[in-house]
Amino acid sequence: MSKQSEIVATMTDQELKLNVYLSQMIMLMLAIVLAFFVFPSWDEFSALFELELGLMIGVGGGVAIAIVVVDLILDRMLPKSWLDDGGINERVFKNLSLVELTLLCFVIAVAEELLFRAVLQTAFGLIIASTIFALIHFRYLKKPVLFINVWIVSFLLGVLFHWTGNIGVTIVAHFLIDFLLGLTIRQRYKRKQS
């Protein structure tokens, strides 16, 4: 973990953002390759993508807003050291334009939901997929509150996917969580600078 923070410290914000995009592209490619082994047919995989806007916005959006509200409450109530990710999220989100923020959050939501919900949860179940999702956020392993929070969010997204059978719902929820929290980070940084 200290090696990771040393590496991150030597990177520019632009290089850090590029690495986020690269990791998401790897996850997306992995999801596509693994989908061929998990789903017996393309039709079964594509059935996860029903365009039900009411469900996607109403349920996905509602779950996202609830998660963001809880996150913001935790941020106010808990010691900052418990929630410190080493400044990585701030470095990634602080200078993004709204278009860049939207694009980055969309890419993250699609790649991670396809891999962790559509493929891994379908293949191995909710608990294993949620645990793997939390473990890829390995910078949180020494931060129990952050790790548990990420695991719970992943679990809730998994429950949402299990309940709806629609990956679009979890993509919308994941996008909104990242977008709203990224927007919060961006606004806090701008306030600190003024």
Rank of each mutant, 00 (worst) to 15 (best):
Asn166Gln: 01
Ile152Lys: 07
Val59Gly: 00
Ile152Gln: 02
Asp85Met: 07
Leu51Gly: 11
Ala64Asp: 02
Ile127Val: 13
Leu160His: 06
Arg91Val: 07
Leu135Trp: 07
Phe106Glu: 04
Ala9Glu: 15
Leu120Gln: 01
Leu115Tyr: 06
Val70Thr: 06
Ile127Leu: 13
Val92Asn: 10
Glu44Gln: 12
Leu16Thr: 06
Leu146Gly: 10
Ile65His: 06
Met1Thr: 09
Asn89Ile: 08
Met1Asn: 13
Cys105Arg: 07
Val110Cys: 05
Trp151Ile: 03
Ser97Ile: 05
Pro144Tyr: 08
Val68Ala: 01
Ser130Cys: 08
Val172Arg: 04
Phe138Met: 00
Met27Gly: 01
Arg188Met: 09
Phe179Val: 10
Leu176Gln: 05
Leu98Ile: 00
Ala9Gly: 12
Ile32Lys: 05
Ala9Trp: 12
Ala134Tyr: 02
Leu126Lys: 05
Gly54Phe: 01
Lys17Gly: 03
Leu176Cys: 08
Phe175Ile: 02
Lys80Asn: 08
Asp75Pro: 01
Ala31Gln: 05
Ile73Gln: 00
Val69Gln: 05
Phe155Asp: 10
Glu50Asn: 15
Asp75Ser: 05
Ile65Glu: 05
Ile73Asp: 03
Ser23Pro: 03
His137Asp: 03
His174Glu: 10
Ile185Met: 13
Phe147Pro: 13
Lys3Thr: 13
Glu15Ser: 11
Met77Glu: 03
Glu15Asp: 03
Val169Lys: 02
His174Leu: 02
Ile128Gln: 09
Leu28Val: 00
Phe124Lys: 00
Arg188Cys: 06
Phe36His: 13
Ile132Met: 03
Asn166Asp: 11
Ala111Asn: 02
Thr10Pro: 05
Ile7Asp: 14
Asp178Asn: 11
Thr131Glu: 04
Val92Gln: 11
Ala109Phe: 03
Asn19Ala: 11
Leu96Lys: 06
Ser46Met: 12
Gly60Trp: 05
His162Asp: 15
Ile132Leu: 12
Pro40Gly: 15
Pro79Leu: 11
Met25Leu: 15
Trp82Val: 10
Val153Leu: 14
Leu103Gly: 05
Leu183Ile: 06
Val107Ile: 12
Lys192Ile: 08
Gly86Tyr: 00
Ser2Arg: 15
Ser41Met: 08
Leu103Trp: 04
Leu98Lys: 01
Trp42Ile: 09
Val59Arg: 00
Arg191Lys: 15
Gln193Thr: 13
Ala35Gly: 08
Ala118Val: 09
Ala118Thr: 02
Glu100Lys: 09
Lys142Ser: 06
His137Met: 11
Leu176Asp: 09
Val150Ser: 13
Ser2Gln: 15
Ser194Lys: 15
